[in-house]
Design a protein around this nucleic acid. Structure first.
Length: 249
DNA sequence: AAATGCTCCAACCGCACTTGC
DNA sequence: CGCAAGTGCGGTTGGAGCATT
C-alpha cells in the first residue's frame, strides 16, 4: 500500500492565489494559529492543498516577512553561509530574519550565482574557477569500494599509513549502506578542534546532561520547543563552533 | 504594434524526516 | 518495532512582466 496523497487533488485549486484566498488563510491563521496544515484548508473554507497553504503563508503572507531587495550585507551573509552550509536554504534563511528559504534560493539562483560566476568564482565550491582545473575530487563511493573503512562516527580510519580527515554523515543501519554526501562544501570541515570540543562536552556533561547541544543548535537553529540546550549559531556566543574552527583545505 | 526572448519568482512536486499510535 | 500521517525541504516548473528585435 502506497502513501496516501497529501490532499484530494481533484477538488483543489492550483496556481496563483487570489486576494480572497489570501484573506481567508490569513484570517484563519490569526484566529487559530499555524499548524495542522492538512485540516486547515477545510477549516478555513479553502479549496487548496494543505502544503500549498503552508507555503503561501510562510513565503508570502507571514507578517514578519521583509519585502524588497536584498542588501549588500545580506548578499555577503548568504554567500558566506552558502560556502559553509551548501544548499541548505532553510538553515541559511534562519540566519536572515524576514527572509524565506524560497526567497533566498531564488535570489541565489538568479543573482548571486551569476554574480559569482562573473567574478570568476565557482558558486558551487566558492573557489576561483581557474583553480578548479586539475583539482582532485574525493569520491566517497570510490573510497568505500576501495575498501576504506569508516568508524562508527563516519570518520575514515587510517589506511595504509595515509591519514584521512574526511568526516561524513552516515545514514542509520538498514538503509543499504547508502552514503549521504551532504550538500556542504566537502572541502570544509565544520568542527571544533577535537580536544576543545571534547573538553567542552565533558565539562558540560559533568554539570548537567541536558546542556549537551543538539545538532540543530550547533547549527544555530532551534527547531523544537523541547530543545533545552540553549545553543547559538556557529558558537558565536558559546564557543562550541566558530569561524576559527572552520578549516578549509 | 507584434513577435520573440529573457528574467524572475510564486507555486508545485517528490522525497526525507519526524511523530504518534 | 513498524507503519502511516503530518510536516518540512530542496529542486524544478510555469507564467507574468519586461526588454529587445
Amino acid at each position: 500500500m502506497g502513501r496516501s496523497p497529501c490532499c484530494e487533488k481533484a477538488h483543489t485549486n492550483k496556481g496563483a492565489w487570489t486576494k480572497e484566498e489570501d484573506e481567508r488563510l490569513t484570517a484563519h491563521i490569526k484566529a487559530y494559529g499555524e499548524g495542522c496544515w492538512r485540516s486547515l484548508p477545510k477549516a478555513a473554507g479553502l479549496l487548496r492543498c494543505g502544503k500549498s497553504c503552508r507555503l503561501r503563508w510562510i513565503n508570502y503572507l507571514r507578517p514578519d516577512l521583509k519585502r524588497g531587495n536584498f542588501t549588500e550585507e545580506e548578499d555577503e551573509l548568504i554567500i558566506k553561509l552558502h560556502s559553509l552550509l551548501g544548499n541548505k536554504w532553510s538553515l541559511i534563511a534562519a540566519r536572515l530574519p524576514g527572509r524565506t528559504d524560497n526567497e533566498i534560493k531564488n535570489y541565489w539562483n538568479t543573482h548571486i550565482r551569476r554574480k559569482l560566476m562573473s567574478s570568476g568564482i565557482d558558486p558551487a565550491t566558492h573557489r576561483p574557477l581557474l583553480e578548479q582545473q586539475g583539482k582532485t575530487t574525493i569520491s566517497f563511493i570510490k573510497a568505500e569500494e576501495k575498501g576504506v573503512e569508516f568508524d562508527g562516527r563516519g570518520e575514515a580510519k587510517k589506511s595504509g599509513g595515509e591519514e584521512m580527515s574526511v568526516r561524513l554523515q552516515r545514514r542509520p543501519e538498514g538503509e543499504k549502506k547508502k552514503w549521504r554526501c551532504p550538500d556542504l562544501n566537502l572541502e570544509l570541515c565544520i568542527s571544533t578542534p577535537p580536544s576543545q570540543m571534547h573538553q567542552v562536552l565533558c565539562q558540560e556533561t559533568a554539570k548537567n546532561e541536558e546542556l549537551r547541544l543538539c545538532f540543530n543548535c550547533r547549527l544555530g537553529v532551534k527547531r523544537s520547543s523541547e530543545c533545552k540546550c540553549n545553543g547559538s549559531f556557529l558558537g558565536l556566543s558559546s564557543g562550541v563552533l566558530d569561524y576559527r574552527s572552520l578549516e578549509s583545505n
